[in-house]
Write a protein that binds this DNA or RNA. Sequence first.
RNA 1: GCCCCCAUCGUCCAGCGGCCUAGGACGCCUCCCUUUCAAGGAGGUAACACGGGUUCGAAUCCCGUUGGGGGUGCCA
Length: 468
Amino acid sequence: MRFAPAPTGYLHLGSARTALFNYLAARSVGGAFLLRVEDTDLERSRPELVDVVYAALEWLGLDWDEAPIRQSARVEAHQEAVEDLLARGLAYWSDPVPEGDRERTGGRAYDPADRDRGLGPGAGRAVRFRVDPDATGATSVGWDDEIRGRIDFELANLEDFVLRRADGSPTFFVANAVDDAHMRVTDVIRGEDLINVTPKYLLLRSALGVASADLRFAHLPLIVNEQRKKLSKRRDDVSLLDYRDRGYLSEAMVNYLALLGWGPPDGEEVRFDPLGEFPAMFRIADVGESPAGFDVRKLRHVNAEHIRHLGVAHFAERARPYFAATPWADRYRDETFALVAGEVQTRVETLAEVPGYVDFLFLADPEVDEASWDAAFAGDAPTWLAAVAEGLAEWPWTSAELYERTMALAEELGASRKRFQAPLRVAVTGRRVGPPLFESMEVLGREETLRRVAAALDRAAETEAPGP
RNA sequence: GCCCCCAUCGUCCAGCGGCCUAGGACGCCUCCCUUUCAAGGAGGUAACACGGGUUCGAAUCCCGUUGGGGGUGCCA
C-alpha cells in the first residue's frame, strides 16, 4: 500500500484520511505502508513543501516503511517508458490545438489525426498515449473495486492522454504506472476523485507489460463540506496542521478521520489509542461508498473526550504551548495552572481554549466582559458584593470555607445562589463563565481577590451615580 | 454536453432478504445534579428519495426516474 501525496505546502485533510486508511489497511494485513512524493511538477519539488508532508504524517503518528520515494528522482525511468511506448507505436507526438480551432477535433485539445502523422519532437509538441482498442484487443477497461464493486469504462470514451509535456517532463500518469510497478504496489487506496484516471493507469500498465491481475483498488468516498462539495482549499479549513494549531490532539484527529467512511464494528467510536486498536478491526472492504460530511462539531466532541481522558499532568503539559501564543505568555506559570488544570480539563473542547479560561489568574487585572458585567451587576448585586467583601476580609481562605460562607450569606440576604455568586465571579474573573469560583479565589489569594472586589465595587458605584 | 460514482435521522456510522414498530454516535430539546459553565445521569426529537419489478417476504436484490457529487488539464 502506498500513500502518494503531491506536495502543496500543506497536507489536505482528505489526503490525511487517505494516508490513514492506507496505513490501517497495511497494518491490518501486515503489509508495508510506503510513501511516494508526487513531485513530477517542477513547482512541487521544493524541499520545504515536501517536509510539510513528513511533518504532518509524523504528527498523526503514521510511520511509514522504507525510505520515501521522490518521483522527481525517477524521471529517467519515466522517460525510458515514454521512449519505449513511442518506439512501439503505442504513443505518438501531438500538437496542441488552439482554443479557436477545436471544432475540427470535436472540441478536443489535441488532434487524433496526429496519431498517424509520424511526427517527431518539436516545439510545443507533447507525447500522447494512443488509446486504441486494437492495442489491447478489448473495447473496455475495468476493475473490481474493493469498495465499489465492478467499474468499467468504454475505451471509446477515453482521450489520448499526455505522457510527456512539451517541456519534456513526464506526467503523473507515467510516473504512477512506472513507480507503482517499481515499488511493487499491491493495493491502490485513494480518493474517489481518481476513479476516472484508473482506466488510463490500467491501459498504461498493460502497454508497459506490467500485469494488473493481482492489483487491488479501493476508491475512498470523498470528504465533503456542509454544502456537500469536496473540501476545497478556498472554502474550507483543509490543512491538517492547522487543526493542531487550533488545539486538536493528534489522536483525536486520527480517531475522527477514521470515522469518515468507516467505523469500528463494535460501534464504539471514541478510541483513545486509535492507531493501536483500529488495525485489528479494519477491513478496507467495510469502508462506505457514499461521501462523508466533515462535521467539526463532532470532531470537537471527539477531541473533548480525548482531552478529558488525559491525566491532569499530561493535559497541562499538552496545553502549555497554547499559552505561549497569548499576549501574556511571559506571566504564565506552570505551578499556578496546575492548581486549576483539573477543573479546566472538563470544560474545554480544544487546547486552544485553555488560556482563555484561566487568563484572570495571570493578568494583573481581569479583562472585563461587558455583557457579563451588565448581567451580573443588575439589581441588588452591588449590595451583595459589598456584603461578601466584608466576609472575605476575615473568612478562612480555603475554597470550602469560602463556598460555605458565601452561600450562607446568600441565604441570609434572600438571594438565589446563582445570582448571588455572579457579581463576585465577574469581579474576580471578569466573566460569568469559568472554572469553579472559590477554587479560583483560593489560588488568587485573599489580597488580590479583595483588591479586585474593591475595584469592581468602585466601578459599580460609578455606573450607578455617573459623573460628579 | 460526455464519462463515472453515490443515495438510511440535519451530520457520521449500523443494517448486507425475515431478528426493523430501523440501532448507536454528534447536534438539538427536557429533566436531575449543581458555586457560573462544563462534565455526569435520565428521557425525548429525527431517516430507509420516488416509481416499477423479483420474492411468501425488501431499507436490504434488479431496472428506471429524480437528486447530489466527482471527472472531463501539457495539475495530481
